[in-house]
Amino acid sequence: MSKDRIVRYTFEEIEEKIAKGGDRSDWARVDAMTDEDILANMRDDPDWADFIDVDWSKTKIVVPAQKTSISIRLDADIVDFFKATGKGYQTRINAVLRHYMDEQGKGKKSG
């Protein structure tokens, strides 16, 4: 997709478009698509290339909790690794720690 076709709208602008019937999505076509059609479209979409074979059955919705600011000392190579993954590296570090915490909680009985 070329960058000249990308448009941006505020939430309010989108709500206004929908209220006026200005939604340009072809929902009838979407509703008529089978799972096979959706999968074929995903396989043809380069934005899905890294995610097409991910097992989404184990995903869970995460509602962000309020964060606590702390100071922590980490090995330089760990920080470099996460920083190299781009913006949001602290969030990814948090996700790794949360996964570890969740895994440690398995098998332990509460109460």
Rank of each mutant, 00 (worst) to 15 (best):
I93T: 00
V30P: 00
S71I: 01
I61F: 13
K3Y: 11
Q66P: 14
D26S: 06
A40C: 02
W27Y: 09
V30N: 06
D4Y: 13
V79P: 10
S110E: 09
K106M: 04
N94F: 00
D53T: 12
K67F: 07
L74R: 04
K106H: 03
V7E: 11
V62K: 15
V63T: 09
R29M: 09
D44P: 03
D37N: 15
D55P: 09
L39P: 02
T10V: 00
K108S: 08
Q66F: 10
V79G: 08
A84V: 05
A19Q: 12
K58H: 13
F82A: 08
D4L: 12
M33V: 04
I72M: 12
V79N: 07
K3Q: 15
M1G: 14
T10M: 00
A19Y: 02
I93P: 00
S2P: 08
E103C: 06
V7C: 04
N94G: 03
D47A: 13
A19N: 05
N41Y: 08
R98S: 03
I18D: 05
V62Q: 15
S69I: 04
V30C: 03
W48R: 12
D77Q: 10
D47H: 14
V7W: 12
E103F: 04
V54L: 10
T91N: 01
K106L: 07
W27L: 05
R73L: 04
R5Y: 07
M42P: 04
T85M: 09
K58A: 08
I52A: 06
G88T: 00
A95P: 00
I18G: 01
K17F: 07
L74Y: 06
S71Q: 06
V54W: 10
K3V: 12
A28H: 06
D31Y: 11
Q90H: 05
M1Y: 10
D31R: 15
D50Q: 13
W48V: 03
D102M: 11
K20R: 14
S110W: 06
F81E: 04
A49P: 09
G107M: 01
D31T: 01
A76F: 07
H99R: 11
R29L: 11
R43L: 13
I78K: 13
A28D: 15
Y100P: 00
P64H: 05
V30S: 03
S25Y: 07
V96T: 01
E13H: 02
K67D: 15
D80A: 14
K17R: 14
D53Y: 10
D35K: 14
A32W: 09
L74E: 02
